[in-house]
């Protein structure tokens, strides 16, 4: 069987899984906000629980954002380190909000809003309608003030999940008519990423590993301030 390693470090609750669309063999979550410390041991442990070694793994699927900038970088830097050694592995990415929505939709039928806290009163938001085999994107991942969810997102979800939903529960209640689903029930699950590998067109193959970086969903605040002040784009940030 061709196995995938899946990882999601977009929020405070990190998740790692090993399996294939035919079945997830192991899944671990960790929540102490020390993803850099916990991620590699969690990967080792998930591999051990799955009874797998690297030779049994054919690819990695990663939730590439949006979410916590630091959390996303921990996941991507770890993936790049693994691929520097195991350069034959396929790398695929999934929007982190889709991974969360898919996990929630296992138990709640109907469109699910996935909301991650983007700080400063904003949320990263997306709405997906899934039935276990297909995904319909009602709202692609976007950044907006939580107070404007109801006004700016055209479809009405049956439930909203994620740390952004919990952080803005009043706005969520007035939008969906229900309490938000927060962690642990409303938490990202890496097993969802594994299952999404079987869904046509929702995972993206990454061929240029060096150029791969998280989908942050928001530019660095310093860049916005600089451009507002100078009235022109920041020079090429790579500047090297």
């Amino acid at each position: 069987m061709s196995l995938y390693l899946a990882l999601d470090t977009a929020t405070d609750l990190g998740s790692v899984a090993v399996g294939s669309p035919e079945g997830v063999l192991a899944e671990l979550t960790f929540s102490d906000r020390r993803h850099a410390a916990a991620l590699m041991p969690a990967i080792d442990e998930a591999m051990r629980l799955a009874g797998a070694d690297w030779n049994a793994v054919s690819g990695i699927v990663v939730a590439d954002g949006p979410g916590s900038f630091t959390g996303l970088r921990i996941g991507v830097a770890t993936v790049k380190g693994i691929l520097a050694v195991r350069d034959g592995l396929e790398l695929r990415s999934v929007p982190s909000l889709l991974g969360l929505a898919w996990a929630i939709a296992r138990v709640v039928p109907g469109p699910v809003a996935a909301l991650y806290d983007a700080l400063r009163g904003d949320v990263f938001a997306a709405v997906y309608d899934t039935d276990g085999t297909t995904v319909r994107e009602c709202q692609a991942p976007t950044l907006l003030p939580a107070a404007e969810l109801a006004r700016r997102i055209p479809c009405r979800p049956v439930v909203a999940a994620g740390d952004g939903a919990v952080a803005h529960s009043a706005a969520v209640r007035s939008w969906t008519g229900r309490d938000p689903v927060g962690p642990p029930a409303g938490a990202p699950r890496a097993s969802a990423l594994v299952e999404l590998l079987a869904v046509e067109g929702v995972t993206k193959r990454i061929d240029d590993i060096d150029a791969f970086e998280p989908t942050y969903g928001r530019r660095a605040a310093a860049q916005d301030r600089w451009e507002a002040k100078h009235g022109r784009p920041l020079p090429d940030p790579d500047g090297d």
Partner: peptide
């Protein structure tokens, strides 16, 4: 590999530095 971008800010911008490291770590080690 030095990140020249910080010169326009007159100091290191942590978020931009972190993002650049993600792009450059693989090629630099290789």
């Amino acid at each position: 590999l030095s990140q020249d971008i910080h010169a326009v800010f007159g100091g290191v911008v942590p978020e931009l530095a972190s993002r650049a490291h993600v792009r450059t770590i693989g090629p630099v080690v290789r």
